[in-house]
């Protein structure tokens, strides 16, 4: 699989993998690339181009995971990216899935409980995910920022950091949602809406797995290392 480089044209990244659109957007880079390269656009938007290229490559190819390279970036840079991803989930992905799921429920015949229970399942899943995101943003990320910027202020407070279990559960449920729709619902609803919904869920799943991977394999090891050095 192709590995992107800094002298590639930004437009060619999108042609190679359009799923990168929101990733690039998360860095604040807007369309209208002209023939500018990754390096040129990163300079224009004041983005660390090494970090950018590591993120797009690891998103593009799950086997490409430059742990050492990524581990060398400041946790602050990574937190900033993770927060932007959270915002994208909260403002765009989750409402999008929710809206389509609701449309689907409305399109199924009256008295059919299937879609209603699937919708409830999703709403409960969303609650758990939002709680997890809030926990990271309100407790974990500030702790890490404090650990780096003013270590003396958080004497002896070791935070237990492991998301793997929670991430695992979150992944399971989104996979279940897919399987329920694909394998076990009666096709009495609007098929086109359901297809769009599934495509959106697949996209979201890819995004969230990538996100969890960065947290579990990059951010947490970095923080553990800093904690152990103290």
């Amino acid at each position: 699989m192709k590995e992107f480089r800094k002298d590639d044209r930004m437009a060619s990244l999108i042609s190679a993998n359009h799923y990168l659109l929101p990733v690039i957007h998360r860095f604040g880079i807007r369309l209208g690339f002209k023939n500018k390269t990754v390096a040129e656009l990163c300079a224009k938007y004041k983005i660390n181009s090494d970090f950018f290229i590591a993120i797009v490559n690891s998103f593009h190819n799950p086997n490409y995971f430059p742990e050492e390279k990524l581990l060398s970036f400041s946790p602050l840079l990574i937190i900033d990216y993770l927060k932007k991803t959270h915002r994208y989930f909260v403002r765009y992905s989750l409402p999008g899935i929710e809206k389509r799921l609701h449309q689907l429920q409305l399109s199924s015949p009256e008295g059919s409980h299937e879609m209603l229970s699937i919708e409830n399942f999703y709403l409960e899943y969303k609650k758990k995910l939002l709680a997890h995101i809030a926990d990271e943003e309100e407790r974990v990320f500030p702790y890490i920022v404090g650990l780096i910027s003013s270590p003396e202020s958080i004497e002896n407070k070791k935070l237990h950091l492991s998301f793997e279990e929670e991430h695992h559960n979150v992944d399971l449920e989104i996979d279940d949602l897919k399987n329920l729709l694909i394998k076990y619902t009666n096709p009495v609803y609007d098929e086109l809406i359901c297809n769009e919904l599934l495509i959106e869920i697949f996209r979201f799943e890819k995004d969230i797995i990538d996100h969890a991977r960065i947290e579990d394999n990059i951010l947490i090891p970095q923080v553990n290392q800093i904690q152990n050095q103290r």
Binding site: E173, N179, L180, Y184
Partner: peptide, 22 residues
């Protein structure tokens, strides 16, 4: 068999298949 792993997922399956009622 089902490819459904979480308890909430299994619960929805059970409702859809009318193994339990809502």
């Amino acid at each position: 068999k089902l490819g459904i792993k979480s308890i909430p997922g299994l619960t929805v399956y059970a409702i859809i298949q009318k193994i339990i009622s809502q």
